[in-house]
Structure formats: structure tokens, C-alpha cells
């Protein structure tokens, strides 16, 4: 009898986990339906394109963030990196007159090195990822302001020509950006599941000391994690510039929160070890969708903040709410 009870508890535990990791899909559908009923304009093609715009850079940034969180850390420097990446890219094109290829290469190089700097602060100076990246984010914002004189840079139509295909082009009626995001997620999933790097990231996030004992080069792995998140922020910057045709020192505002929200909504564990990239993608879509709807309803700032907060709480508590409902009257406390 004791056995049956334990199996029952196990089943509940498994359901709870399932609800925690996949509940986001259910909630997303519910929220989407509610908004569509209140505001059918949501489904208009131009709105859907705007959703793609918003989602694309958050999705790419959140993919990198999934690795950082899975390794047991955080990367709060992504807004700084994204703003700097966008400013550098437009700066190289406009001020320095470099070719697109060279500009992209140099931008990714700079951003990647700054990501390595994040990694080194964490692995060599043993700073907490939270604090280290919070501090570097401020520095990156500062550099951006110095570099741009705190103004945006707009690309001329020739300079924008090649990028506009990425930002506004279509292949078989599908926005190119959507394809880019899908390719990025395909690559990241491969990196996460199939490569030794992926296994080691999960190992470090799961139990750093045990990973070290098992012969994993923890410092090396973490350095590359922060390079990865930085490169993803760089890619998000490219998508931003390709969409807007310009850069702004404020391009990265709220980018960190959106990314982290997407990752957490997606069911990754904040304590590390368990990342869910597909969930992150849905999370990014979710975050952008809610923001877009509130824009569309031209809701006042106060309402926006409250609705966003409530939706977040609802989505995140789905797992524990369902298991509480199931456990009512159970024996254990």
C-alpha cells in the first residue's frame, strides 16, 4: 500500500514538472485567445509582422540567455551589448565607410571579446555573474554613448539595401527574419543537445563542483557561455538595425528583462542545469505578444505594467497552481 501511495506521489510530481515546463503553451493559447476576442485587430497581417519584428531579437537574445542561465549564471549585460552592437554596426557602415561584411565581422569580434571579458570577470576574478554583468552593462552603455555622442545613426538607402533584405524581405511569403530565428534555434538546439560543449554547460549548471571533479574545465566552459550570449546579443543588434534601418543608444532598453522572462516562461530552471530552448522561443513570442497587444490597445503605462506583471505571475505559477489543486486533501504537508 505504501508503494502505491509513493507511485501516486511520483505521478503527481511528474505532472507538476510537466505543468511547469509545458504549462506555458496552455497559458499562451489562453492569453492569445482572450486578446484576440477583445481586439481582433491583433490578427491583422501588419500586426503579425510587427510581432515578428519584436519577437526576432528577443528570441535570439533569449537563446543566448538560456545558455547563461543553464550554466547557473546570468547575463545582465545583454542590453548594453545589443545597443553597442547596433551602434558599432551603423558606425562602421556610416562613419568609417566599411563594407557590410567587414562591419559585421568587426562588430561580432568586438561584442564577442566583450563577452569574453564578462566570462573572465566571472571565472578569473570570481565575481558573481549577476554583479559582474550588471557592472559591465553600465560600462557598455557608457562606451556606446561616447562612441555615438548619444544620438542614433541612420543608414543611407544604399547602405541599408543589403540589410533590408534581412529586415524586411520575404522567402515564399515567410519573413526572412523568421527563417533566421529558426536557423539560430536549430543551431542552438544542436549545440545544447549534441555537442560536448552543451553537455558541459549543463554539467556546470547542475553541480559545478561535481563537474570540476569529473574533469570538466569549468572556466573554459563558462568563458564560452558568455561569448555565446554576447554573440547572440550581437545578432539581435543586426536584426534590430536590419529592421529599423538605424541604431539608437537605447536599442537595448528592457532587452535583458525580456530575455530573462522568455527563458523563465519557457520552463528553464533559474538555478541552472535545465534549459529548454524551444520553451524559450515560445516565451519570447509570448512576451512580445503581450507587449504588442497592450500597445495596440493603447493602454496607459500603469495598466501595461500591471497586466504584464499579472500575466507573468499567472504563467509562472501555472505549475504550482495545478499541483496544489491536485494535492488538496493529500497526506503530506
Amino acid at each position: 500500500m505504501a508503494m502505491e501511495k509513493r507511485n501516486e506521489i511520483n505521478r503527481r510530481e511528474r505532472f507538476r514538472r510537466l505543468a511547469e515546463t509545458h504549462g506555458i503553451y496552455v497559458i499562451f493559447v489562453i492569453v492569445a485567445c482572450v486578446f484576440c476576442i477583445f481586439e481582433p485587430r491583433v490578427l491583422h497581417p501588419s500586426q503579425l509582422l510587427e510581432l515578428v519584428d519584436r519577437t526576432s531579437w528577443v528570441a535570439v537574445g533569449a537563446a543566448g540567455m538560456t545558455f547563461a542561465i543553464c550554466s547557473g549564471g546570468f547575463d545582465l549585460s545583454v542590453p548594453g551589448l545589443m545597443a553597442l552592437g547596433a551602434s558599432l554596426l551603423t558606425g562602421f557602415l556610416v562613419k568609417s565607410g566599411f563594407s557590410l561584411g567587414l562591419s559585421l565581422f568587426l562588430m561580432f569580434l568586438c561584442v564577442g571579446l566583450l563577452g569574453l571579458l564578462n566570462g573572465l570577470l566571472i571565472t578569473r576574478l570570481k565575481l558573481q555573474p549577476f554583479i559582474a554583468t550588471l557592472a559591465t552593462c553600465l560600462c557598455f552603455h557608457g562606451i556606446t554613448q561616447v562612441y555615438t555622442g548619444n544620438t542614433g545613426t541612420t543608414l543611407s538607402s544604399e547602405q541599408y539595401a543589403a540589410l533590408s533584405y534581412l529586415g524586411r524581405g520575404f522567402v515564399f511569403g515567410i519573413p526572412v527574419k523568421v527563417l533566421v530565428v529558426l536557423v539560430v534555434y536549430g543551431f542552438m538546439l544542436w549545440l545544447y543537445h549534441k555537442t560536448s560543449f552543451g553537455v558541459k554547460v549543463r554539467a556546470v549548471g547542475s553541480n559545478e563542483q561535481a563537474a570540476r571533479t569529473a574533469g570538466v574545465n569549468v572556466e573554459f566552459t563558462l568563458n564560452w557561455v558568455y561569448v555565446t550570449t554576447a554573440l547572440m546579443s550581437g545578432l539581435a543588434a543586426v536584426l534590430y538595425v536590419a529592421t529599423m534601418g538605424s541604431s539608437s543608444p537605447r536599442a537595448g532598453d528592457n532587452f535583458d528583462l525580456d530575455c530573462i522572462t522568455a527563458v523563465v516562461l519557457g520552463g528553464s530552471s533559474l538555478s541552472g542545469g535545465r534549459g529548454r530552448l524551444t520553451g524559450t522561443l515560445v516565451g519570447a513570442l509570448f512576451v512580445s505578444f503581450v507587449k504588442m497587444c497592450l500597445n495596440l490597445l493603447s493602454a496607459p503605462e500603469a495598466v501595461r505594467a500591471m497586466v504584464t506583471g499579472l500575466v507573468l505571475i499567472l504563467a509562472l505559477s501555472f505549475g504550482s497552481l495545478t499541483s496544489t489543486a491536485m494535492n488538496r486533501g493529500g497526506a503530506t504537508k
Binding site: S196, V199, A203, A210, V216
Partner: peptide, 24 residues
């Protein structure tokens, strides 16, 4: 102990993963 979020096989071979070009 172990890395609870990794599979048994991953835990056993973590220090010496059988890889080709970094792919497990």
C-alpha cells in the same frame, strides 16, 4: 555527487566524452 540534470551516461563519461569534432 553527480549532476542531477544530466543523464546517467552523460554523468559517467563527462570527463571523457566520446566526441568527433566536438559532437557527442
Amino acid at each position: 555527487n553527480l549532476m542531477p540534470d544530466l543523464t546517467v551516461a552523460e554523468n559517467i563519461f563527462l570527463g571523457c566524452l566520446p566526441t568527433k569534432y566536438g559532437v557527442v
